[in-house]
Design a protein around this nucleic acid. Structure first.
Length: 493
RNA sequence: GGUUCCGUGGCCGAGUGGCUAGGCAGUGCUCUGCAAAAGCAUCUACAUCAGUUCGAAUCUGAUCGGAACCUCCA
């Protein structure tokens, strides 16, 4: 539980940083909009999930008991909500000539593999839309009963106009209904089933050739596109819960509709703190599949993509993202990624140094200052860039102790070691990626032998042999680095 | 057009009234047979114009430029 300094969270609803106070401490309910599993997740998606991974990790660190729910959307994402709506997953299934659930399984697996690579902690519950059809039907019934929805030809629409008369449709995104009306006048032409242009489907009658469909009081159909999140958050976190996260692009209409549905069904505004992560951009434009500027995590790692000069490890990317505030866009560039790669390396090297530091009787360094600064940064709306900056201040300190320019005693060293373990590995979720992970005992022993031979050459001042060994190993992507009285080696991809 | 937001040094990116983060690159130095790596030190800034103020990157207004959302997207 937060003691001295409280945690502040930027709430999209109030557009202010607010002190975080859990509804039912020590429990915290957090819902994050997960992926629609109709194709591979790309790097932009990863950034969003990473943001909330850190939120989850930090809340846990603070002592909260977090139930983290992140859904899998496996049905119901209609391409539009007009009469001829089409389901993304079905469309993809037809293209690939396989079962919709095969698509769902394939890309769910892919999603899990990807987020594992980036060291994201799995959520406490990962519910699927198709697993909650009954609950969705029940929610539609509650909304109808409360007079906020109407049925037309086997479809049910949320009555936004009526809702807005009693509540405030658009409170999250700052939109006004009459302003929306002005901009979408064209859309009103033509005889749709909706009574009002802003109404949205919460149950949609199935087209004849639809494969995924369910029986309901209104006939055979599919749940509307915004409903699942309302249903599953209510089921697992209650009618009102602490944090709801998602990408900025979901703010409107998706999250706006969630609020309306929850109030329409249960009379309760569902979320205390709305959090929105910003977009990953490429050359200043949002990364998205339709623009063709996205790339897949595998392409990133291999470097096999026109936009990439080389491959980058998942941890480099994780660190790169954490060096920016989650509320800002991050622009992808090779230069920035390479800077992150080196910076991360510097941090990890310093941690190695930290673990083998020799102690003195006295400390003349202020470890508390670094620890305090790191915590305050995280408490300031999960400000990972400044947290990392403070960790780098510590790097300077660690190196100076290692150079005998400063001293540290046993107690302080333990504190500092613990701090870096906690912040770097537990909270920021970075891991040591041994670039020589392909090593086995045999290569270790062989390399040890080669290095011994080379050291003998060096002792004999046979520089040409020593250099030959180093140059030839270089061709095999093995780099030799000489330190004062030993040599290390690394396999570089 | 509407809503929301942004423009910081070569690059990335913090910072919301005075104390000028951090990383990468550059430069100098240390270490070293050489190299690499590592370490230390260090230089470049606040889109433009006007205003408020003792004082502004930070507040106000205008101008220019950019983005997201308003249609599925994290």
């Amino acid at each position: 539980m937060p003691e001295s300094n409280p945690l502040y969270i930027y709430n999209s609803l109030s557009r202010k940083k607010e002190v975080f106070e859990a509804l039912n401490p020590p429990f915290v309910g957090m819902y994050v909009c997960g992926p629609t599993v109709y194709s591979d997740v790309h790097l932009g998606n990863v950034r969003s999930f990473l943001t909330f991974d850190v939120v989850y990790r930090y809340l846990t660190y603070l002592g909260y008991n977090v139930r983290y729910v992140r859904n899998i959307t496996d049905v119901g994402h209609l391409l539009d909500d007009r009469d001829e709506g089409d389901d993304k997953i079905e469309k993809r299934a037809r293209l690939e000539k396989i079962e919709p659930m095969e698509i769902v399984q394939k890309y769910t697996n892919g999603f899990h593999n990807t987020v594992n690579q980036f060291n994201l902690i799995p959520p406490s519950i990962e519910p699927t839309a198709t697993g909650h059809i009954i609950e969705q039907i029940e929610m539609v019934q509650r909304i109808i009963k409360n007079g906020y929805a109407y049925e037309v030809n086997g479809s049910v629409y949320f009555n936004v106009k009526k809702y807005d008369e009693e509540h405030n449709y658009g409170e999250l995104s700052g939109r006004k209904l009459d302003e929306l009306l002005n901009q979408t006048r064209d859309e009103l032409e033509g005889g749709h089933e909706k009574r009002f242009f802003a109404d949205f489907a919460i149950w949609k009658k199935a087209a004849k050739d639809t494969i995924m469909k369910w029986d309901s009081p209104w006939g055979i159909g599919v749940p509307g596109w915004h409903l699942e999140c309302s249903v599953m958050s209510t089921k697992y976190l209650g009618q009102a819960f602490d944090i709801h996260g998602g990408g900025m692009d979901l703010k409107f209409p998706h999250h706006e509709c969630e609020i309306a549905q929850s109030i329409g069904a249960d009379g309760v505004s569902p979320v205390k703190y709305w959090m929105h992560g910003n977009m990953l951009t490429v050359n200043g434009t949002k990364m998205s599949k339709s623009l063709g500027n996205s790339f897949l995590p595998e392409e990133l790692i291999s470097g096999d993509h026109p936009l990439l000069e080389k491959g980058y490890t998942p941890m480099t990317v994780r660190f790169f993202f954490l060096q920016a505030n989650y509320k800002s866009t991050v622009d992808f560039s090779n230069e920035a990624l390479q800077a992150a790669e080196k910076g991360l390396n510097r941090l990890m090297t310093a941690i190695d140094t930290l673990m083998q530091l020799t102690t003195s009787e006295q400390s003349n360094v202020d470890v508390d200052a670094i620890i305090k600064a790191s915590k305050e940064s995280m408490n300031d709306d999960f400000n990972t860039p400044t947290t990392i900056a403070h960790l780098f201040d510590g790097v300077k300190l660690i190196n100076s102790i290692n150079d005998n320019k400063n001293t540290i005693n046993d107690a302080d060293l333990k504190i500092l070691q613990n701090h870096y373990n906690t912040f770097v590995f537990d909270i920021l979720g970075l891991t040591k990626e041994n670039s020589s992970s392909s090593n086995d005992e045999l290569s270790d022993e062989l390399m040890g032998l080669i290095i011994d031979l080379r050291n003998q050459s060096k002792e004999n001042k046979d520089w040409s042999t020593a250099d030959l060994i180093r140059d030839e190993l270089k061709k095999l992507n093995i780099s030799i680095k000489d330190t004062k009285d030993s040599s290390t080696w690394d396999y570089e991809k």
